[in-house]
Each structure stands twice: as structure tokens, then as C-alpha cells.
Nucleic acid binder design. Structure first.
Lengths: 357, 357
DNA sequence: TTGTACGCGTTATCAG
DNA sequence: CTGATAACGCGTACAA
């Protein structure tokens, strides 16, 4: 336990134990059998010198692997984790990566504009992009040049990167049809953010044209197949509170009173937004679904959502995360990664009904 | 762009540019001024060879820094991020670490019992433990031996590790007094998990004695100063749904009917639990605070909590995270880390009132 | 089963 | 402002 200046290295341990460094190395890695006697001698020497095992940095340089998988999330970290879909995907990812990886490295999407993207300086074996905008792609090139596998979940990767995708447009169209078939003609939509700016705003043609986030645009396109001219609000994020704000804007006048031409149905692009819309409706004295139909998207099972089963489109979030993990595992093994496409399933609930006549 | 077998290294780039490797290195690190001409020559050579900048692994070995800070969270990852307090602390942490660090590495608390704790194999510059049980301490020793700074937030570190602490017991006592002074005598408590097992259960002396999570025990101790014999339920986590379940158990009979001897006040050890308790009460036809007082702990401002301002004890979660980050920064700079103690503030709300007479 | 020798790709130091 | 050199700490053929 008494080292002079330097910290003990594996070479010191080997010398103290009277073996070669390779033997000592093998004792720690456990890759080859060593005689029990020598093994113990090495361990004892290590204990005496206060050697804590191979330095991960050096091992990582040598093997070319760090065991770390980077996760780049769109928007701020705290926002990303407030979204149950993201959480569940991370869960699936972490699950599928379990064997070969030490942990997930959280990386920001939006580096300070001045300096290099952090992703380039991180010792990662692979990267998963989750719901990132185009900005992250520049950073990606650096990483890809280095031979680091990349998988994109619902982002605009464009090129030959394996992607995990969802039938957002078709699923949204199906949901819109459900609402249409119930008899609704005055329908409004609450969308997810249109771009990385994440601004709350009334949906307009111009704003729509400037949108960059594919998830939002695809879901909207499906909705528009059925309700081409429906009004809408864009939320600043997938949050209950945002749903409340957006729904209020859709249902009330400037003075806060219920509008006479209010929609009879609200199609939200996420379940959290839908829950917010329901809350706003209830605050305004509307009963769901008797007075107002509200439908969501995601099929999440989040904490404290309330007892009413939401009519929604369920997406296989866990499977998406797991698929990303599996593709990464394959690519780390030298095989080619493949894109995987998932489809959503309609999930009828208690929040949609024909309009009051 | 045509490299034979190997990937290009900085040495290749230097050779191609007709400079020494050190010059090339300096061009990329930007630590020293280089003549614009040589700089461009190096960059050009790099572009031609498809060199993507210094390998983080090698740089990390050389400098002894990876720019990565490990975060060990109690329980499962997905649970940890459902807790707004944790999220906010991470936010503060990430904020304070911002300057010198690439990202946060999420590490599991509960390694498979067989293999080494992942924390030991990760190239991290420092570690933050958040609400971990004693199990994580073994892993800690390995890391500490290596000279990696460690900071513990609300965990039982015991030794000379800098800790970020909260006056859980005093704050809880203060809140209990508030409830007492309102006139409540039949009070029940909903606690956070007692140990890493996280089992839902009625609070008993035996279970209490076997508890290992300090946060829970300290808050309970404060409560018990005022209400020594109050009944209670232990939740499986800090979740709204758990609060609902626990409150139902406290308020109703086996057949689901409101008990005659139900408590007139419920003290929850977290705001989410309190929100759940309020929901359960409302489902049972009780009005808060007229029929039932419900108080929380944390002072969170989470998504979709509803409009009623909770009577609670606010803890400076952001400051806690930031303090952890600051201590780490200091320790990385070679200074000694210090423990930091925070105190909570009582925050009156609309969910506590005298009992119905 | 153990030892020898080498290289992984970089950066700090110091001299010019 | 640039160049030569020496570590950084380890894993792994290969030979014994």
C-alpha cells in the first residue's frame, strides 16, 4: 500500500509477484487459465500495491473498445428524459446492449456553436441518435469516418446509415380516419415541435414548410390526408403542460371563453399532449369523450396518467430501442447493420366517441 | 481518401504534410499557435487521408483524462429518470460540469452479481453516486484506489468521501409539526422505498429496522419525532401511481370502502407520492384539503402535476446537482473536495388545512 | 502455462 | 514557431 510517486501499474504488480506482465494481465482479464498459485500471488501483490485493476484508458487504446455507447438526444437532456417514449427506448437499447457494454454516454445534440461537437471527443464504440435534427449529422460524419457504427432512431439520417423507423404517416392517417368515421368534421391537431427551435405556435403553411423534424411532419402528413384544412397548434415539446396550453388555445377565445366553433375532436401527436388536452377540456367543463374526442399517439404507459384509457396509436418503443441495440451489436461484430421498420397498432380507448349531435 | 488497410493516424497526416507529429497534434488540439500555412497544410493532408482527428482513446491514455463523468443511479435507469428530483439534479450536475466534460456516463447500480461492476471498467474522470445503497460502495473502492474523485449525493458513503446532503430529518419534522399544528392527530405516512428491494408494504417495526436507504429513514425519523406511532405504507418508488396505491391502502378497507378510522392527513415522502395520494382521495370522493390534508416533500415542478399548489418541503435539487459538479471540478483540479449540506424550505400550499371538525 | 517484445495513437517536454 | 523523443499502461502474437 506504499507507493512512492507513481500509481502502481500492472508491470509493478507482475514484478512484485515474480511473474511477467502478460501473466498478470491474464489474471485480471481471465481470458486464459492460470495456475491457482500464481493467480493468488498476483492478486496478493496487487492488493499490497493498491493496484485497482487494469486502467480502462490503456485497455481501451489497446483493444480498440471502450464499451461505451453514445446516445445523442434531441433537445435538452432533461426534456428528453421527460418523454416516456424516449425513456422506454433507452431501456430497450440498454437491454440489447447489455452484454457488451459498460454504459450509455449521454451526449448533447446542440453543442455550443463555437467548439467541436462533444461526440467527436468521446471514446465511444457506437452511437445512437434519437430524434435528432439535421444539425447532428455534421458531427456524425466525423464519427463515421472513424469507423464507429451509427444507428438512427427516427431522425433524418438520409444516407446509408441504418435507421429504426416507424410508419408515422400511415398510422396517423388511420387514426384520423377513425376520428372521421366517428363523424367528426371540426377537428384540430396538436403537433410536436416542428424544428429544433421548439416554439409554441399556431400551425400555418409557412411554419409547416420550414419544419425539419420528420416525426412531426410525417404524422401531420397522415393527418392531413383525411383533414387537409384542419387548424392546429404546435407544442414546444411532448409534455402534458404543453397539451394543456395548446388545447386551451384551440378551444377558447382570447378572453378564455369556450369558442362556439370549437373543434369536436382533437388529434394530438403524442399521448402526453393528449392527456394535457383532456385536462384542459375538463377544466373548461367539457366531458371527454361526450363533449370532445381526444386521441393520442404512442401508447405509453406512463406514471400518473389517470384512469381513462386513451384512444391512441401504440408504437413499439421498447422494440425500437432493442432493435437499435441489436443492430449496433451486429455492426460491432463486423456485420452490416440493417434498417428496421416498425408499425404501429390502433388502440381503442375511452376518449373517442361520435360528436354530440 | 485512399488508405490501404490501416486507418490514418496523426503520424500519417504529419508525414503527408511534411511536418512532425507534434506539430500536427498541436494543429488539432489548438493549444499552441502554428503558422497559418503549416496549419492549412496539415488540415489538407488530414482531409485527403480521411483523418477524423485525434483518437479519443489514445488522447485519453496520454492525458489521463477522458472527459467523462460517471453517474451511478440507484435502482433501474428508467425509474431514476422518472423522478423529477433526479432529473433536476442531473441537470445541475451537467451544468456545473459543462466546461471540462464531454458527457455523463450512465452506470448501473446493480451489476449482475457475477461479473465486475461496470464502473471499474469505464474510462471515467470522476463519479457521482446518486441515492445508491451500500452495494455500490464496494465498487467505489476500486475506483477510489485509482484516484478517481467520488462525490455522493444522498447516499450512505460513510467515509471521507465528499457528500452532498440534505436536512431530511429536520425538514420532515418541521412538516410534521405543521400538520400537527393544524390539529391533525390521525396521520399516516407514505414512505419512499426502505431498501434496494423496493417492495411495497405496510410499515412495520421489523421492516423499518431492516431499512438501508438513508433518505427514507431520515425523513421517517423526522416524522416520528412528532407522530411516533403513526401508521404508514412504503411505496415501491417515487411515483404517482405508487402514491395512489399506498393512499388507497391507507384510506380504505379490504373491500375498497372508506374506513371510518381513516387518517385526516397523509404525509408523503415525495411530491409524486403526494400527488398520487390526492388523486386516490379524489377518486374516493374526498376533497383535499377539506376532507384530507396531503403534504409532500421535494418541491418539484414536474409536468402535468395539476393546478393545486402542494404544501411541501422544497429541496434545492438543482443546487445539489450543481454542488456535486463543483466539487468534482475542484477535485479534478487537485484540490480537496468538500461535503456540502443543504437545507429545505417549507412551502405552504393549498393541500393542507385543519381537519374537518 | 508462462515470458518476451512490440505496438496501440497520442501528447508533454524540451531544445532549437 | 517547429521537431525529436519519450512515455502513457496495457494486450497479444509468438516462442519456449
Amino acid at each position: 500500500m506504499s507507493t512512492a510517486g507513481r500509481r502502481a501499474t500492472i508491470a509493478d504488480v507482475a514484478r512484485a509477484a515474480g511473474v511477467s506482465t502478460s501473466t498478470a494481465s491474464v489474471v485480471f482479464s481471465g481470458k486464459v487459465h492460470v495456475a491457482e498459485a500464481t493467480r493468488e500471488r498476483v492478486l496478493a501483490a496487487a492488493g499490497e500495491l493498491g493496484y485497482a485493476g487494469p486502467d480502462p484508458r490503456a485497455a481501451s487504446l489497446r483493444t480498440g473498445r471502450s464499451g461505451i455507447v453514445g446516445v445523442v438526444l434531441g433537445g435538452e437532456l432533461r426534456h428528453a428524459f421527460l418523454d416516456p417514449v424516449t425513456t422506454v427506448m433507452m431501456d430497450g437499447l440498454s437491454d440489447a446492449l447489455d452484454v457488451a457494454s459498460v454504459g450509455l454516454l449521454l451526449l448533447r445534440d446542440d453543442p455550443r456553436e463555437d467548439d467541436a461537437p462533444p461526440i467527436a471527443d468521446a471514446p465511444i464504440d457506437a452511437v445512437v441518435l434519437i430524434g435528432c435534427s439535421g444539425r447532428a449529422r455534421a458531427a456524425l460524419d466525423v464519427v463515421r469516418h472513424r469507423g464507429v457504427p451509427v444507428v438512427v432512431i427516427e431522425g433524418d439520417a438520409g444516407d446509408d446509415t441504418p435507421q429504426i423507423t416507424l410508419d408515422n404517416q400511415q398510422a396517423s392517417a388511420r387514426m384520423a380516419q377513425h376520428v372521421f368515421q366517428l363523424g367528426h368534421r371540426d377537428v384540430a391537431v396538436i403537433t410536436l415541435p416542428l424544428d429544433a427551435g421548439r416554439e409554441r405556435a399556431r400551425l400555418t403553411v409557412e411554419r409547416l414548410a420550414a419544419g425539419t423534424l420528420d416525426v412531426t411532419l410525417d404524422r401531420l402528413a397522415g393527418f392531413r390526408e383525411v383533414f387537409p384544412d384542419a387548424p392546429g397548434m404546435t407544442a414546444a415539446g411532448s409534455l402534458i403542460d404543453e397539451g394543456i396550453i395548446a388545447a386551451r388555445a384551440l378551444l377558447t377565445d382570447a378572453d378564455g371563453a369556450l369558442r362556439h366553433d370549437r373543434p369536436t375532436a382533437i388529434v394530438a401527436q403524442s399521448d402526453l399532449l393528449a392527456v394535457g388536452a383532456i385536462r384542459a377540456a375538463e377544466e373548461l367543463g367539457l366531458h371527454v369523450p361526450a363533449d370532445l374526442t381526444v386521441v393520442g399517439f404512442d401508447g405509453i404507459d406512463a406514471d400518473g396518467l389517470g384512469s381513462q384509457r386513451l384512444t391512441t396509436i401504440a408504437q413499439p418503443a421498447l422494440a425500437k430501442g432493442r432493435a437499435a441495440g441489436e443492430q449496433i451489436t451486429r455492426m460491432l461484430a463486423g456485420e452490416a447493420g440493417e434498417s428496421v421498420h416498425f408499425t404501429c397498432t390502433f388502440q381503442d380507448g375511452e376518449t373517442s366517441a361520435p360528436p354530440a349531435s
